[in-house]
C-alpha cells in the first residue's frame, strides 16, 4: 500500500511537509513507523531541515552515507548551501543509476530545475510511477516555463487517480492562480482551507491565501493575511515580497519593505527583476532626446 495514501501511516508527516509545516515534520515521532516507512520519513525530515535553513547540518548528517535516497538529499543540501556544480553532478549520476527511485526523481528534479536545467528535470520526473510529488513538480516546472496548457493537463491527469490529496489540490491551485477568472476563487478556497484550519495552517499557506486574495482584488484581506504571516515569521521573503507588491498597488511607498526584503533575501526574484528592469529603463530611455536641450 502507498504509505502516503489516506490510510497510510506517513499521511500526516507527508501532509505536514507539503503544507509547509516543516517544524511539525522535524518533530514528528517516527519511532512507531514500520521499517519500510522509516526511510521515506527520514528523507522528509531531512528535507524539512533543509527548508528550515539547516542545510549544513543535513549535509553533515548524510556525509558518506550510501543509498540513492540519502545521496539525493545530500545533493539537495549541497545545492542549498551553494555548491551547485557538485549537486548537479551527483544528481546526474543518480539519474543514471537509479532513475526509478521516487526520492531521486523528486529531489533530482528540484536540483536540476533550480539549476536551470528544466528539460533534464522534466525528463527525470517523467519517469515517475504514481508519485504525486513528482506530478506537482512537473506542474510547477511547466508553470515556470509558462506552459499553462501542459500544467493543466498534468493536473487533470493526476486528479483522476488521486482526487483527495493535498498535493493535487495545491498543484491545481497553482495552475488556477495562473489561469484566473473563476479559478482564483477556487484556489483561494484551497489555500484558505489549509491556512485557517489549525491542524494544517502554516506561514506558507497563509501567504498563498493572501496571494489568492490579492488576485481576487481583495486587498484588505490579503494585507491582513500577509501581516499575520509576517507576525509568525518576520523573515519570510515571499511574504515580504507580496506585501511589497500589495503596498505598491495601494499607492503607498514600499521603501521600508524593499529594504527589509533586501536584508532577508537579496536574490529574491522581485529584486532581481526590478534591478534588471531598472537597467533596461535607463538603457531604453537613452534612445530619446529632446530636439533642443533645456535652456
Amino acid at each position: 500500500m502507498d504509505p502516503f495514501s489516506a490510510e497510510g501511516e506517513l499521511i500526516n508527516i507527508h501532509n505536514h511537509f507539503h503544507q509547509g509545516q516543516y517544524q511539525d515534520v522535524v518533530d514528528f515521532d517516527t519511532s512507531s513507523l514500520s521499517s519500510e516507512n522509516a526511510l521515506p520519513a527520514r528523507v522528509l525530515q531531512l528535507r524539512a531541515q533543509i527548508a528550515l535553513g539547516h542545510a549544513e547540518d543535513v549535509l553533515a548528517d548524510v556525509q558518506g552515507v550510501t543509498g540513492p535516497e540519502l545521496e539525493a538529499v545530500g545533493a539537495l543540501a549541497e545545492y542549498t548551501t551553494g555548491d551547485v556544480d557538485s549537486a548537479v553532478k551527483t544528481v546526474e549520476k543518480l539519474a543514471q543509476s537509479s532513475a526509478d527511485n521516487a526520492t531521486v526523481q523528486v529531489l533530482g528534479g528540484i536540483v536540476l530545475q533550480a539549476a536551470g536545467k528544466s528539460d533534464e528535470a522534466l525528463a527525470l520526473l517523467s519517469q515517475h510511477s504514481g508519485n504525486l510529488e513528482a506530478v506537482t513538480l512537473i506542474v510547477q516546472i511547466h508553470l515556470q516555463q509558462n506552459r499553462n496548457d501542459l500544467a493543466v493537463k498534468e493536473v487533470a491527469a493526476a486528479r483522476r487517480w488521486a482526487q483527495d490529496s493535498v498535493l493535487v489540490n495545491l498543484a491545481e491551485s497553482w495552475v488556477g492562480l495562473r489561469l484566473g477568472g473563476e479559478k482564483y476563487q477556487q484556489a483561494f478556497y484551497v489555500f484558505e482551507e489549509l491556512a485557517q484550519a489549525p491542524s494544517t495552517s502554516s506561514v506558507r499557506s497563509l501567504v498563498s491565501q493572501a496571494v489568492a486574495e490579492l488576485h481576487l482584488g481583495r486587498i484588505e484581506e490579503a494585507q491582513s493575511a500577509l501581516e499575520q504571516a509576517l507576525q509568525k515569521e518576520p523573515d519570510f521573503a515571499d511574504a515580504i515580497a507580496n506585501l511589497l507588491v500589495l503596498t505598491v498597488i495601494t499607492g503607498k511607498d514600499p521603501k521600508a519593505l524593499t529594504s527589509s526584503l533586501e536584508q532577508v533575501d537579496a536574490h529574491h526574484p522581485l529584486l532581481t527583476d526590478l534591478a534588471e528592469k531598472s537597467e533596461l529603463f535607463d538603457k531604453a530611455a537613452t534612445k530619446y532626446k529632446p530636439k533642443v536641450a533645456a535652456a
Binding site: R47, Y79, L143, V248
Partner: peptide, 30 residues
C-alpha cells in the same frame, strides 16, 4: 511602480523559487 505591482510570488515546492503569478485588473477574465 507599475511593473512591481503586477506580479505576486506564490511559495510552491520547497527548494524551488516561488511561482510568479500576474495580478490582473480584469478579474473575471480567463
Amino acid at each position: 511602480e507599475v511593473f512591481e505591482s503586477s506580479k505576486t510570488y506564490l511559495p510552491a515546492s520547497a527548494g524551488l523559487p516561488p511561482l510568479v503569478n500576474y495580478v490582473r485588473r480584469t478579474l473575471d477574465e480567463s
